[in-house]
Design a protein around this nucleic acid. Structure first.
Lengths: 146, 146
DNA sequence: CGATATCTGGATAAATATATCCAAATATCC
DNA sequence: GGATATTTGGATATATTTATCCAGATATCG
């Protein structure tokens, strides 16, 4: 029953969209958690991953919070995914010894193809392109849903 | 750290390829487990799912085993995946109330797009097309890998 | 019918992902 | 400097996935 992307990935993307959407200098974890419906304590871990990956800057203490390290127009979905829960390309045979280049069996070549096309789609999608339609982001989701 | 596809899915596909590859009437779970390097007891559960979904026929007792219910040329990867661990299209906003049609926010529309293209790729891939290159299937994987 | 081989399915264990709790470090404000 | 707000990170709890164990049902063979 596994989704294609983990919950951690979903949270990381929501958080980056929240940061990209915000006009203020920085958002606290609490603010992001509230607006994006993410459990605060878990979000803290995810933001920590994003911080270590260099995608956000963090500031401790009163008045602190998180800021995107780069403009949303220069940040892709793939980078966010990779920071918290990388897509795993199949490079070697999962059954045995390493197999290089094109030497995967047809099954694993096809499965890797699927990962690759998702990778390509995500690398062509900026966080900026996810901002604007406020429907599933924050409170407005409930307001506008029917 | 989640892969895009679950271990269960990987096993189900290996098993279907094994059944499609075999020339004999039926394969026992033990034979499939050995040739495809799948834990026997776990494979039993997976084969049970495939059986309930009608993708394989099972026969109990001595001389029994599993057979593909349909020719491999008429069975797609998507059907196998769907039988054991369905891809979950995003149809409603994961944050709030149901949102119909095109009303997902940009983030979830993009994520659903990714699921959709994988779905399309898998529905265009037959199990038959996975048979033949024996590299990552069974013992030969170890033999030919360098 | 008895022995054997096999699937079926329940119970349980181990590993991993997700979530929660809370103390410590750090920065700001007064 | 003291009070407060915040990130950081360790410890633990819960849920889910994966794996294992084993008894029961069922079929074949002699």
């Amino acid at each position: 029953m596994a989704a294609m992307l983990s919950q951690t990935t979903e949270y990381a993307l929501r958080a980056m969209v929240a940061l990209a959407t915000s006009s203020s200098e920085a958002l606290t974890a609490q603010e992001i958690a509230a607006s994006s419906h993410i459990p605060l304590d878990y979000l803290s871990k995810v933001l920590s991953l994003l911080s270590r990956a260099g995608l956000v800057h963090s500031q401790r203490g009163r008045g602190g919070g998180f800021q995107a390290a780069r403009p949303a127009s220069e940040l892709t979905v793939l980078e966010v995914v990779t920071a918290v829960d990388p897509l795993r390309r199949i490079k070697t045979c999962p059954l045995g010894l390493p197999v290089h280049g094109e030497n995967l069996c047809p099954l694993h070549r096809k499965l890797d193809d699927a990962v690759r096309i998702v990778e390509e789609a995500f690398s062509a999608t900026t966080i900026e392109s996810l901002v604007g339609g406020t429907l599933c982001q924050g409170e407005t989701c409930h307001a506008k849903a029917v």
